[in-house]
Nucleic acid binder design. Structure first.
Lengths: 248, 248
DNA sequence: TTTTAATTTGCATATATGCGCATAATTATT
DNA sequence: AATAATTATGCGCATATATGCAAATTAAAA
């Protein structure tokens, strides 16, 4: 990849998100963070970005907005994202939910994966929008405020009309006894519809969500094909799950 | 192979991909990289390409050449956003497109406006997602990469089923003679459908887009109800538009 | 504070580039 | 047609640029 291309892509990221992290760009563009920082220098000299610790921001960036302090458990989520990437094969169709873990996965997806993604969350749509070889299709609907995912009858309807190889969802509660659980009724309906639309079901969950239960039931554990946590599959903590799902 | 043929092929590659690697061309045309570089020299002298380390790029791609433009107009866009806010009444339904000007409007919308927004762009959806009293409904579809707006038949379909008080769109080209114009066919279809779905049409445009024309026609000027620019309505620059639309 | 993460710096390596020259191909001249 | 002149091409080498790695430094976070 030409350096010029990288600069273009960096600017695109900055204009898109107002801020970029060196680490994210490093993974996206598959160069070292050093190189990203050197690119930053050029863009700074050109007055196109401003440097901040950890990344860069657009010159017109105002702090109050977009300042999401999502750093929490980000490392675990990145491990999960790396594992989940292995499920994404060339030319597959994927139905993908929202939530911070899923967004981490979206960011980690390589620039040259050729596939079709059906997305339910505007954030995920944006995170994927710069991947040249990806078809991104938003399943529209009412934006649920607390989850930032499209919900409602129209979503369920549209989901009933598509078939995908895989669906990827985040877990709010997961236990051997109760299976997958959530606290939001609308989201539960959406996830159920997603699972019907997909051949295989992958659940991404940081380990702290394991062995917890939310008010509403989504499905039994055995309805899940892959469970991806930041722990190695042979971690004793995961032992109870081994019989029902494939651990990654 | 004749040198002239090579030059032709090189230009074709550049126009096709906006960039070429010396190494690729060397292999493709079966000549040494030196020769390719010497070819580059000719094309550079002719102003047809620009040299970068590792290859060459099309002049429009080279970033130092299109340095400004996007970021600087932000102030104007904020002025436009403030004016456009006045069109948003309590309990109205609004259909809103994408683009930087529109995103600026979305950010400017007050926290206690009670209304329903149909959105076509994930960025706009996110910008609106934290307004407590807003219903945000995404019209889903294939995400168009260059505009970051949902497009395609499903969008047109969904738009045919809704009725809103107002639609707000950004202009790419606007002139008295040619009306509203754009360069992307998919977007044109979407805008037309938006206008059919809405009672009133507001066009937001920074003044530099005025009196310019793009390849594809969207509609005549009189199909637009409100034209909002950063200039005051009595600016002489806007005089030709006065008869056809209401200026804000 | 201590601890962690990000950045800078210097260095090593790989790749790209420019130049001189020899050779091959093309064109002009006799 | 043969030869001279011109132009195009490839190769080796010196230099410049780009990139990654590791240690040292600096900034943020706990």
């Amino acid at each position: 990849m030409l350096k010029e291309e990288r600069l273009k892509l960096i600017m695109r990221e900055v204009n898109l998100h107002n801020k970029v992290l060196s680490a994210d760009l490093s993974r996206l563009l598959d160069v070292s963070e050093d190189t990203i920082r050197r690119d930053f220098k050029e863009l700074i000299d050109a007055g196109k970005i401003l440097k901040v610790h950890g990344g860069a921001v657009s010159p017109s960036f105002h702090f109050p907005h977009n300042m999401q302090s999502d750093v929490y458990a980000r490392e675990s989520k990145q491990i999960i994202a790396e594992k989940a990437k292995k499920l994404l094969k060339k030319d597959c169709t994927v139905l993908i939910e929202g939530g911070t873990t899923i967004i981490e996965l979206a960011k980690a997806i390589s620039n040259d994966l050729h596939a079709t993604f059906f997305v339910l969350s505007p954030q995920v749509a944006i995170a994927l929008s710069d991947r040249e070889r990806l078809d991104v299709i938003s399943i529209g609907g009412k934006l649920s405020r607390n989850s930032n995912v499209h919900t409602g009858a129209s979503v369920i309807n549209q989901l009933s009309e598509i078939k995908t190889d895989l669906c990827i969802i985040g877990a709010n509660g997961l236990s051997v006894a109760e299976g997958l659980t959530d606290s939001d009724w609308e989201i539960v309906q959406v996830i159920k519809a997603m699972m019907r639309a997909a051949q295989k079901v992958a659940v991404l969950s940081i380990s702290e969500k394991l062995n917890t239960t939310q008010r509403l039931k989504v499905c039994e554990l055995h309805a899940v094909d892959y469970l991806i946590t930041e722990l190695p599959p042979d971690d004793p903590f995961l032992a109870p799950y081994k019989n029902s799902v494939e651990l990654l």
